[in-house]
Design a protein around this nucleic acid. Structure first.
Length: 419
DNA sequence: CCCTTCACG
DNA sequence: ACGTACGTGAAGGGT
């Protein structure tokens, strides 16, 4: 049966994707990404001056100098020297992570300064200073490695450098994106799947309301906000829409009332109500979660649209905490993994068409739900059409019950090209 | 070499 | 009673 469907071309399995993807990945790695090194050098100087200033402020607030990059020294300053109230503990001592410092910011001026310092220091060391060192001596470009056998869900991973976690938020983050540029006579084209995971959730669950939202091209977060809060669109505030967005994310991740309450800053009881209401209104989603967990327990693995398996031994654990992890993996993996399947098929299809019609347009990166191309200016209109058509076409090819939507952005650098 | 932290989807 | 949202990679500190 499976063989016959495959011969008819109506069935694709993940095995049929991994191997054909290899030459596509090889080409992306070979193509590389062009970098504005001068821009980054200037930014580095600017960050250095800024960090020096902040270091003085921090020393003044702390009553002495210390290594701000050392969580251990920082904990000593915050919790012993200044006597602030510690939050949660790690294996090695009191935590000084972002959540903790944000809480502490109500008691003292130092924590906010530390957070500020940390974010800038991160950007400088991980990106601004590190990336120019990794340019290939011959091509003068960044050539990442895209790994197909690392992520348990079937996603790609990117190393040396990781180009899948280039900053996208904040003033300095955007300045870093600006340094990823198109060569002369070219533009960057970014093509982004819109709401890929909720769409897959709609397909896998066959929830009629979710399917209808996407079929009509409605705003998923507005629609869930209306359901959760029981109000018409005119009465949905920004905060309500934002909360609904977080609920949808949470559902995909295997939510707990605690996690949601922490994330959106409401009581656990309130968070529990949101989750329950969501499951009442989208009851097929709860059925999908239950099914995924039950199937994972029975078979020892979960599956994606293309039949990719993820073993989840934690589901058989006697330890409730481990089993909880396993259950969340069983909820998330089919969704995240199916999204990975989908974009891999898209990459193969787009690559094939480009090879035929536009050999000078190069695929230069994949970032989970997004593809980035370097396009000769004269080919831009045709490239946009081709990429959007091929990426959206994967939905029909794989028999999805909802349409796929791709947003496009164009520009001379990654900041402005990002849709 | 492990731990903590934080950058992305 | 318990811990508590999925998947990654890199840098810096400290042993």
């Amino acid at each position: 049966m499976l063989d016959r469907l495959k011969e008819q071309g109506s069935l694709t399995l993940f095995q049929d994707v991994e191997m054909p993807l290899v030459p596509v990945l090889a080409e992306i790695e070979r193509n590389g990404f062009l970098l504005d090194v001068e821009g980054l050098r200037a930014l580095s100087k600017e960050l250095e001056r800024e960090l020096d200033r902040m270091m003085e402020t921090i020393a003044r607030l702390a009553g002495g100098e210390f290594n701000i990059n050392s969580p251990k020294q920082l904990a000593t300053v915050l919790f012993e020297k200044l006597g602030l109230k510690p939050g949660r503990k790690t294996k090695t001592g009191y935590s000084t992570d972002e959540d903790t410092l944000t809480q502490l910011a109500t008691q003292h001026d130092l924590p906010a300064q530390i957070l500020n310092y940390r974010s800038l220091s991160k950007l400088k060391s991980t990106y601004v200073d590190a990336l120019p060192e990794l340019l290939h001596p011959d091509t003068k470009r960044l050539h990442t490695s895209l790994n197909q056998t690392v992520a348990a869900t079937g996603r790609l991973s990117s190393t040396e450098p990781n180009l899948q976690n280039i900053p996208v938020k904040g003033d300095y983050g955007l300045r870093i994106r600006e340094a990823f540029i198109a060569p002369k006579g070219h533009e960057l084209l970014c093509a982004d799947y819109s709401q890929i995971e909720p769409r897959i959730l709609a397909h896998l669950s066959q929830d009629p309301r979710l399917i209808s939202v996407f079929a009509k091209g409605e705003d998923i977060h507005m629609a869930t906000a209306m359901e959760i809060f029981g109000l018409p669109s005119g009465q949905i505030t920004r905060d309500m829409r934002r909360a609904a967005k977080t609920v949808v994310f949470g559902i995909v991740y295997g939510i707990s009332p605690f996690g949601l309450s922490q994330n959106i800053g409401v009581s656990q009881a309130e968070a529990k109500k949101y989750i329950e209401t969501f499951f009442e209104k989208f009851s097929a989603v709860r059925a999908l979660m239950d099914r995924n967990i039950a199937e994972g327990k029975e078979k020892g693995y979960t599956t994606t649209i293309l039949g990719r398996r993820r073993p989840i031994p934690e589901l058989q654990s006697g330890d409730p905490v481990q089993r909880g992890f396993g259950e969340r993996m069983a909820i998330n993996s089919p969704i995240q993994g199916s999204a990975a399947d989908l974009i891999k098929v898209a990459m193969i299809n787009v690559h094939k068409k480009l090879h035929q019609d536009q050999p000078h347009t190069k695929m230069i990166l994949q970032v989970h739900d997004e593809l980035i191309f370097e396009v000769p200016e004269k080919n831009l209109d045709e490239a946009k059409r081709l990429v959007k058509k091929e990426m959206e076409g994967v939905g029909k090819q794989l028999g999805l019950s909802v349409p796929l939507k791709v947003d496009l952005g164009v520009g001379k650098n990654w900041r402005v090209a990002h849709p």
